[in-house]
Amino acid sequence: MNIDREKAEFLDEMIDYWQQESIIEEETAKKLKSSYETKAFDWRKLAQYSIYIALACGVFALGSLLIDDEILNFIYQIYDAPNYVISLLSFAIAAWILHRGNKRRIILPKQQFTNEALLFIGVMLIANGLAYLGKSFQGNTDRYSTIFLMAIPVYAFLGYFFKSRLIWAFALFSLGAWFGTESSYLSRSNFYFLGMNYPLRFVCFGAILTALSFTLKNIKKHQFLFQTTYFIGLLYSFSALWLLSIFGNFASIDQWYQVNQIQLFAWALLSISICIITLFIGFKFKDEMAREFGATFLIINLYSRFFEYFWDSWHKALFFFILAISFWLIGRKAEKIWNLEFLKK
Score class of each variant (00 low, 15 high):
132 Y>K: 09
175 L>N: 06
116 E>C: 02
142 D>R: 12
121 I>K: 00
158 L>K: 02
134 G>F: 13
186 L>T: 04
139 G>S: 03
140 N>F: 09
178 W>H: 15
185 Y>N: 06
129 G>T: 10
196 M>C: 10
120 F>E: 03
105 R>I: 08
129 G>W: 10
129 G>C: 09
174 S>H: 01
107 I>W: 06
165 R>P: 00
150 M>N: 01
129 G>A: 04
193 F>P: 00
144 Y>A: 06
137 F>C: 06
177 A>G: 07
122 G>P: 05
115 N>P: 10
136 S>M: 08
196 M>S: 08
185 Y>H: 07
175 L>M: 13
170 F>E: 02
124 M>P: 01
194 L>S: 09
138 Q>K: 12
160 Y>N: 04
192 Y>M: 12
189 S>H: 14
161 F>G: 02
165 R>S: 06
122 G>K: 01
136 S>E: 15
167 I>V: 15
121 I>T: 07
137 F>A: 14
149 L>P: 02
167 I>E: 02
135 K>S: 11
127 A>S: 11
188 R>Y: 10
144 Y>V: 05
169 A>Q: 05
166 L>A: 09
173 F>D: 01
126 I>E: 04
111 Q>G: 06
131 A>V: 15
165 R>E: 15
137 F>V: 13
141 T>A: 12
186 L>C: 03
116 E>V: 07
129 G>Y: 02
185 Y>R: 08
191 F>W: 09
139 G>P: 08
146 T>L: 14
157 F>P: 00
164 S>C: 06
113 F>K: 11
112 Q>R: 12
132 Y>G: 09
181 T>R: 07
165 R>F: 00
151 A>F: 00
171 A>E: 08
121 I>W: 09
175 L>R: 00
172 L>Q: 14
111 Q>P: 03
106 I>C: 05
137 F>P: 04
128 N>S: 10
143 R>A: 14
170 F>Q: 02
164 S>V: 03
186 L>D: 11
166 L>C: 04
150 M>Q: 00
146 T>F: 11
172 L>H: 07
